[in-house]
Amino acid sequence: MELELRHARIVVTISNSGSISAGAQELGLPQPSLTAQLRRIERAVGGDLFVRSRSGVTPTELGARLVPRLADLVRQADEVMAEALAGSAGPLRLGSTEWTPPTLREALQAALPDAVVQTRTLNPAAALDAVRRGTLAAALVPQVPGPAFGGALGDGGGDDEPALARSLIVREPVWLAVPHGHPLTTGGPVDPAGLVELADRCGLAWVRSSPDHWFHTVERRVLEAGGRGPDRVLHHVDSHQEAMHWVRDQGVAALTTPSGALPGVALVPVTGTARVELVLRWRGSAVSHETLHALVDALRAYYCAYARSRPAYWTWMRRHPAEFPELRRHLPSPVAA
């Protein structure tokens, strides 16, 4: 096997992150896949690059010699790509999941005044495939960490596909959406184990995600925490936006992330649910460091601007800043509980 730039990036990512598991998370790959790729790289260079232990990895003597040179190779490749991109007059195409508000495209364009920003809405698997094929520069997609949910949603690339880099924008809670003014909004956080029974007592029917929608697995896990799912399901939807229209117009209940809510819909915190991560994904050095920094900062600032439009959620974020460490630069001083 001949060494390629992506192999150098794998080694450098493992070294910088301190463990194979952390490196797999950073690259958006299953840990067994990354381990197998590292073994092939080590066979190609003639020896182990890292000593594995429960606490992480440390470079071997060979690794101490080669990792800095591989890191320099990655840095130079990124500089070459940045220089090439700086002279490109083509548009910067960005994907997102569920929906793309016009204000989001405007915020990204303002953050990148020298580029022509184009946006596209598509499902997570299609967005990641478009990034791999180069038809999108980057995509904002949801994922739920942990084996219970299968790791990155829609990211089923094989060993020979290019690894996609990632930057976490925010971890969103999964909350209950009910019609505006519903009594449940005054009772504080609810326990997922009693969520279905609570909705039944309030006479609330449900809308749920279609089985092929990315949120279905998350939703099923939360709604079945008490041993059974809801009996009264009126409709299955294919987007958060459709679900929120049903909540607002038909007076039903649904689960959602706060960024999926609409005016006229109230959010009720649900304790202990899995967090949906909104992650920016891109292919290797296809986007310059300067552009990535501007994109990540603009996305986090936009998320906070959105949260301010949802007073209950904004107050929650300010009372629980430890749950939103990526947004700390954009969050004001915490408020008292």
Rank of each mutant, 00 (worst) to 15 (best):
L292W: 06
A130C: 04
V45G: 08
A126L: 12
V207H: 05
A77I: 05
Q37H: 13
D249E: 14
E161G: 04
V279F: 03
P102T: 09
Y303R: 08
L29Y: 06
F149S: 08
M1N: 07
G203T: 05
A89V: 14
V276P: 01
V67Y: 01
R43D: 15
E98I: 09
V11F: 02
L112M: 12
H213T: 09
G46P: 07
H289C: 14
V270H: 00
A86I: 04
P145G: 03
G95I: 05
V265I: 01
S209A: 14
Q31T: 12
D249S: 08
A307G: 05
A254S: 13
I169P: 06
Y306T: 15
L85P: 06
I20R: 00
I14D: 03
L38E: 03
D78K: 07
A22P: 01
L112T: 12
A138P: 09
A322H: 14
F324H: 02
W282T: 11
G47H: 07
E106Q: 15
G194Y: 12
G158L: 09
V252D: 07
I14C: 02
V144Q: 05
V51R: 14
L27R: 00
E224Q: 13
H320V: 08
T217Y: 04
L49W: 10
L34W: 08
S15W: 11
D48K: 14
L122H: 12
L327K: 08
S55E: 15
A294Q: 11
G203Q: 02
A312C: 06
T121G: 05
L295A: 07
A139W: 02
D78Y: 07
G251T: 04
H7W: 07
T315Y: 03
D231I: 01
W175A: 11
R75C: 04
G203I: 06
R220Q: 13
V45W: 08
R6C: 03
R221T: 13
P113S: 06
A125W: 08
A199H: 01
H330N: 07
W246V: 00
L327N: 10
S33E: 12
R308Q: 14
S309A: 15
A125D: 14
F149Q: 10
R328F: 11
A86V: 08
S15M: 09
M81C: 14
A126K: 04
A205Q: 10
R6I: 01
V233D: 08
P189T: 04
R329V: 13
V80G: 04
G156A: 11
A163L: 12
L262R: 12
G226V: 03
A243L: 06
L164S: 05
E326A: 08
G56I: 04
E323N: 14
V222A: 07
D231M: 03
M1F: 01
A225D: 13
Q118M: 14
A261E: 07
A322Y: 13
A86F: 11
S96A: 15
G181H: 10
Q31F: 02
E4N: 12
P147Y: 12
C304M: 13
V196T: 10
T217W: 06
G90P: 05
V276W: 08
H182F: 02
L104P: 04
E42P: 05
P189N: 09
G260D: 04
V178E: 04
V287S: 05
G154D: 09
A336N: 14
V12S: 08
W175Y: 13
T185E: 14
Q37I: 11
H7K: 03
Y313K: 03
S33H: 03
A125Y: 14
L29W: 00
M81I: 05
